[in-house]
């Protein structure tokens, strides 16, 4: 019970902080049940590709699930299944050290830092932590093919209007 309260309180705090100060082009908000009530523990968010990269002109959707042990444990952030990136598992789960409780996750890490960290990861994949074969293989061996696929994906999530 105590854990759950702590989680909700921290999420409320994050929400407030996010509203006050979030990076341009990003969005993050709790999902809604059919009666209009908010599900604070499950959010949807969007991460824009950095300008002047092959990820630009698109906002990539993610879901954020805050586990009961949050902030002791990190939120689970996922792109849609099949998202093309060397560090994203086929299920969409992101392989990033700040999202891993055994690695660099710290309870003090804010939602804003996580979102910016994921945005950074988009254009600077870590080939040392491959999470899916197609994108990793193309990134390592065939950059032209890799970039073509990334641009195609950007069109799928295009947000220019």
């Amino acid at each position: 019970m105590a854990n759950r309260d702590l989680r909700t309180e921290r999420i409320q705090q994050e929400r407030k902080q996010w509203r006050k100060d979030h990076p341009f082009g990003f969005y993050a908000r709790p999902t809604k049940a059919s009666d209009g009530s908010l599900d604070l523990h499950n959010w949807k968010a969007g991460i824009p590709g950095k300008p002047q990269t092959k990820w630009e002109n698109a906002t990539y959707p993610v879901t954020i699930a805050f586990p009961e042990e949050y902030p002791a444990k990190p939120p689970k952030i996922r792109f849609p299944p099949g998202f093309y990136h060397p560090n994203v598992y086929p299920s969409g789960t992101i392989c990033l050290s700040i999202l891993n409780e055994d690695q660099d996750w710290r309870p003090a890490i804010s939602l804003k830092q996580l979102m910016l960290g994921i945005q950074e990861l988009l254009d600077t994949p870590n080939p040392g932590s491959p999470a899916q074969e197609p994108a990793w293989r193309a990134f390592e061996k065939d950059k032209v093919e890799y970039e073509k696929k990334v641009r195609q994906q950007a069109k799928q999530y295009a947000d220019k209007h």
């Binding site: 341009f24 082009g25 220019k160």
Partner: peptide, 21 residues
């Protein structure tokens, strides 16, 4: 253009928030 697009998106979010009321 980009700033106005985000402004409209945020207003859309506001309407989503108002809708249950």
């Amino acid at each position: 253009h980009d700033e106005f697009r985000i402004y409209r998106r945020d207003v859309g979010d506001l309407f989503e928030s108002i809708f249950p009321i």
